[in-house]
Every structure is written in C-alpha cells, then in structure tokens.
Simulated assay, not measured.
Amino acid sequence: MPEGKIIKALSGFYYVLGPDGMIQCRGRGIFRKNKVTPLVGDEVVYQAENENEGYIMEVKERKNELVRPPIANVDQAILVFSAVEPEFSTMLLDRFLVLIEYNHIRPLICITKLDLAQSETQKLEKFALEYRDAGYEVLFTSSETSQGIEELSPYLEGKISVFAGQSGVGKSSLLNALRPDLDLKVNDISQHLGRGKHTTRHVELIKIGRNGLVADTPGFSSLEFTEIEPTELNFCFPDIEKLSEDCKFRGCLHVSEPKCAVKAAVEAGSLPGYRYEHYKVFLQEIKDRKPRY
C-alpha cells in the first residue's frame, strides 16, 4: 500500500500527499478504538478506494507531537514575536521556548515589525545578543520592508516548521512575504484588547521554497507546563543547563542550594537576570501544579 504525509486535516478528512498526488482520506475505525488520532505531519500508510478517496490504514511512529496546535513530526518552531504591537515580551518568549525545548523541537526566534520599532532597536539588539549567547538563533524581519525575508528562507528548506506566537504578531504577514500567492488573511490589532484576532482556523502544511513545509497555526491555546517535572525544567534552558554542570550538587534546582553555578553566574552578570527570574517563576508554577492521577 502507498505511503504519504498528512498535509491538512479538516472536518474529519485527512488530505494525504502521496506518490500520485493529494488524496482525501478518512481514518479507519481501529484508530478510534486504539485512541490514535492522525495528525497533520504524520507519515501514514493508506489504501486508495479511487483516484481521489481512500482510508488511512497505519500511522507511522512519530518523533514528536504537539497537542495545541495538533501537529506531528515538527523539525523546528519559528517563534514569531513582534517588536511592537504587541510589545516584545521575554517572559512570553521564554515560556514558548521551554515548551518547544521540552518537545525536542529546534527553535528559531523571529522578531517582526522592525519597521515600526525604530526607538526600540537598541533594546531589541541587546535581547537578541543575550538569546544568541544562550544558544538560540535570532532573526529580525519586516513584512513591510522585506527585511530578513531572504535570510529566513533557507531555514525552512527540507523541514516541517511551525510558525507560532502570540496572535497579532504577524505570522500570516510573514508567510505572505515568503510566498505572496498565499494571500493569507491578516487582521489588524485590536486597539482595545491590545492583541490580534486569530485568523487561522485549521492546521495545514504549506509548501515554501523547493521542499519546505510550514504550518500556519492558530497558535498555542495552552502555554501551561502540564507535562514538565521540576527536575526537567533545567534542560529546557540551554544556558542554565550548561552552567549547572558546575553546580556542587547533582539535581540542583538553582534556588536554595549552596555553591550553585547558576546563581553565581547571575551575580556575576554572565547570565541575564530575567532568564533566571523566569526560570524560578516557571519552577514554582510546576511545583504548585495539581498532581495528575
């Protein structure tokens, strides 16, 4: 039986890109019985009933999956944050980064709307330098002026990428700049709410460049750390994880333990204070989480 990749899921149908093109499939009842829900990005085995319709018979093993947005086998997450409107937030960025790191997805930080942020440029450059020092790649872009668009394109080749971020930051505008024929709907920022309305209603993989696939998603509807344990948070901060190798105690949580290399780095100014403060906030949030049964 042929194999393919689910490109879109909508109203109970799965659109699979196979060797003979796109075919609309339904899932066999066995998936409901085994509580397996096919996701966009899944590699599947399918049976064609005719040229246009078929059934998914098997879902191949996934390397990762996200619940919100529902997508599997993601190679990288383009974390889109605007310089202004809405204002750039390191707290929100770190929350996204922790979730992406926990799911073993490579993040790329993309700061948009540079054309609107002339007065903020120096501050944003400082943040970019600090996140690069932490091990992340950071790009500056503007959909209006096309700044950074050519630089972003090579990152998408040969990968499944998720564009994620706060609503209103310009995800759809960025995709339109990468592929103008898409003409994705863009809503203006609500001045009253200070954020945009979601303009994307389902998850779909869009071809970008020669062989890149990008998911324009409705965004993460949950940014809670429901799966992460206190001892795992350390590994979701690459800069803190590296420093922790020099902590005196194995399993150091970097809060009250003596001879902690992470706290020493904050005091010395080699680890940005806000990164450490966010780590402590997230750690307490995880500790305060109700136990799962």
Rank of each mutant, 00 (worst) to 15 (best):
L108M: 07
G29C: 03
P180L: 14
E241F: 13
L99S: 02
G212N: 10
F237L: 06
R289E: 04
N50G: 06
L97K: 09
T145E: 03
L17G: 02
E51S: 10
H278N: 15
T226C: 01
N52P: 00
P154W: 03
G29A: 02
H254E: 01
T231H: 14
S11V: 01
D75P: 02
T145I: 02
F88K: 13
F235K: 15
E3T: 13
S256E: 15
F249S: 11
Q166H: 12
R95N: 07
E51C: 02
A261H: 13
P238W: 12
R28H: 04
E130A: 15
I240R: 14
I78K: 04
P180G: 14
C236T: 14
G135R: 11
L108T: 03
S167P: 04
G170Y: 06
G273Q: 14
Q76R: 09
I100E: 01
K63R: 04
E245N: 15
A83I: 02
D20A: 10
R95I: 01
H202D: 08
E157P: 05
K259Y: 14
K242A: 12
S173N: 11
E232S: 09
E257T: 06
E85S: 11
I149S: 06
E229I: 02
F96W: 08
P154N: 02
F235S: 15
P70D: 04
R95K: 15
T112F: 03
E144N: 05
E232F: 06
L156R: 10
V44F: 07
L129D: 15
R292A: 11
D246Y: 09
P272H: 08
A9Q: 15
H104Q: 15
L124F: 06
R32T: 05
M91T: 14
T141N: 09
V59S: 01
K159D: 09
G219C: 00
G209R: 10
D115Y: 00
N176G: 12
L129I: 11
L271R: 11
Q24F: 00
Y46R: 04
Q122I: 05
I286G: 13
F13P: 02
L92C: 10
P230F: 00
P38W: 01
H202T: 10
K8Y: 05
D133V: 00
V214K: 07
Y102H: 15
A72Q: 03
E85A: 09
G27M: 06
R289L: 04
G209H: 08
L193V: 08
K126Q: 13
G21D: 14
H104W: 15
V214S: 05
S146C: 06
L253E: 14
C110Q: 06
G194N: 09
G135D: 09
R289I: 01
R28T: 03
V281W: 10
S146Q: 15
L271F: 05
L99W: 01
G18I: 11
K171F: 00
A72D: 05
L66A: 03
K207I: 04
F249C: 07
R32Q: 12
V16I: 14
P258T: 04
G27I: 00
